[in-house]
Amino acid sequence: MLGEFLRDRRARLRPADVGLADYGEVRRVPGLRREELAALAGVSPGYYRRLEQGEHGAVSEAVLEALAKALRLDDEERAHLHALANAKTVHPEMPERLAPRHRVLLGAVGAVPALILGRHTDVLAWNRLGHALLAPHLDFDARPNWARLFFLDARVRGLFDSDKAADTVADLRHLAGRRPGDTALTALIDELRRASPEFAGLWAAHPVRGCAHHTRVYRHATAGPLTLTDELLPLPDSDGQRLVLFYAEPGSPSEAGLRELSRASSLR
């Protein structure tokens, strides 16, 4: 994963971007050459080659910062670089379970749509309003994978604009970078790359961005357009599970739309 990210970001830079002379020569590959980036980062070409090929041990903080500077990474990309370099291989795990206290917590936020995502973006539980907002065509007791649902279910995909697709892929990138060797996560990503050209294209672009909160428009079949903010909150002692809350501005038409959706879902 580290080598893949380095190659992608190196390919995005041109000699002129980093103050190198460009004599109009035809390059066989886009972006900077390995030796050029190695020189900018102050490491040997051989060492940098091993980094890209995954043949390295621990990478020092100083080297990572030098690479981030040479690659012109922003703060989120720099954090992702460090996470990739320091990730620990994940060993086979027990099936994921939701702690009883977190199920109680989910029930306590019934006034807003909410769900709990597992470490592979599985929907471990949702409240009635979260289900009514995101997937009312599914059985309430269904436990789908959110990434699979978003890219492969046309009704769910129709709720969102294209920004949500990039955010979903960026989130999976973050998860995969922190969980190398997680076979279930790798299988999910491989499945989506095969099944969804949209996912495959975005995955190849290596989107890296924060996924803690977003404000976006939902094109809901029952409630109409809703402008909602979502917050992804890590749950303590849960190995990567997250509580996701959706809310509208107080007094807004979207808040009224959520109330109507809540009434409608309570009658189902």
Rank of each mutant, 00 (worst) to 15 (best):
L6R: 00
D8W: 14
D8H: 15
R9W: 02
R10F: 01
R10S: 03
L13I: 04
P15I: 05
D17I: 10
P30H: 10
G31K: 10
E35M: 02
V43L: 05
G46P: 00
Y48G: 06
R49T: 14
R50F: 01
L51N: 08
V59M: 13
V63G: 02
E77M: 11
E77R: 14
R78A: 07
H80S: 09
L84K: 12
K88V: 14
K88F: 04
T89V: 14
P92T: 14
E93Y: 09
P95A: 12
E96S: 12
E96R: 03
P100M: 07
V104I: 10
L115P: 01
W126D: 04
G130Q: 07
H131E: 00
A135C: 13
D139Y: 09
D153K: 10
A154Q: 13
R157K: 12
D161V: 00
D163I: 00
A176D: 11
G181D: 11
T183N: 13
L188S: 09
I189S: 02
R194T: 13
A200L: 08
G201W: 05
V208N: 14
V208D: 02
H213C: 12
Y218W: 14
Y218I: 07
H220K: 05
G224S: 10
T229S: 10
D230G: 02
L235N: 05
Q241R: 10
L245N: 07
Y247E: 09
A248R: 07
P250C: 02
S252E: 13
A264C: 07
